[in-house]
């Protein structure tokens, strides 16, 4: 099984040179740490920054420079700053190439739920609905099962939906899976030490297994 760092490392392998990427809060934010040095990408923060730099050193901290998770960040040579409406023009207009975000549930037809647990959590959707409605390529980073052991890869989502038919790929602590256009999770890779049978048992939605499933290569 992978830990959060492992999931982030595996997703970093999906990142293509010369692309603009929006990283969600949590595991997706960690992906930035594992993008190879020969891959040049620009990270977008929906609160109005293209070209997110590393966290600041103590004396560089600027309250006027944060990411969408409200963490202090820095700019880089070539960064640009803009308003929230322009930020979502970039997103809605399809100018951001890849969106990586977390989820509570994903369904076999690519629906995602990640903003609300009725009666329990009412924090709001932030920019997630705009991102999933407009991004061409969406990768979800999440645990395969909930803390209580229930599969988060489902036939249909039980929680309120964030967006329909939008997720293309899911990377979990157990597996890498593509969502097939006709529906179903196609198993591509297993996490180190995890068997296909364990993945089958942990996947409530339709799982498609064809041929030998290789183990992920990390590092």
């Amino acid at each position: 099984m992978l830990d959060k760092i492992g999931i982030a490392k595996r997703i970093a392998q999906e990142v293509q040179d010369g692309t603009y990427i929006n990283l969600g809060i949590g595991i997706p934010t960690l992906v930035a740490n594992f993008i190879p040095e020969n891959i040049n990408v620009v990270l977008q923060s929906e609160n109005g920054l293209l070209g997110i730099g590393p966290f600041p050193e103590e004396e560089q901290v600027d309250a006027d420079l944060i990411n969408a998770g409200k963490q202090t960040v820095t700019t880089l040579p070539g960064s640009s700053l803009f308003s929230s409406s322009e930020s979502f023009e970039m997103i809605r207009g399809g100018h951001v190439d890849l969106t990586i975000l977390g989820a509570m549930e994903v369904s076999e037809n690519g629906n995602i739920a990640n903003w609300k647990i009725p009666g329990k959590m009412v924090k709001g959707m932030g920019g997630a609905m705009d991102l999933v409605a407009s991004a061409d390529n969406i990768i979800v980073a999440m645990q395969h099962c909930s803390r209580s052991g229930d599969s988060k890869l489902l036939k249909s989502c039980s929680l309120p939906i964030t967006g329909l038919n939008c997720v293309k790929k899911v990377v979990t602590n157990m597996a890498v899976l593509d969502i097939l256009p006709e529906g179903g999770f196609k198993l591509l890779e297993r996490a180190p030490g995890v068997s296909v049978d364990e993945i089958k048992a942990a996947t409530a939605g339709k799982l498609v297994v064809e041929g030998e499933i290789p183990e992920m290569k990390l590092d």
């Binding site: 966290f55 600041p56 103590e58 901290v61 309250a63 944060i66 998770g69 409200k70 963490q71 202090t72």
Partner: peptide, 12 residues
């Protein structure tokens, strides 16, 4: 005051 919600820094 310009309060910071998530003061996140790195070591030099």
């Amino acid at each position: 005051e310009k309060r910071i919600e998530q003061r996140t820094t790195r070591i030099k």
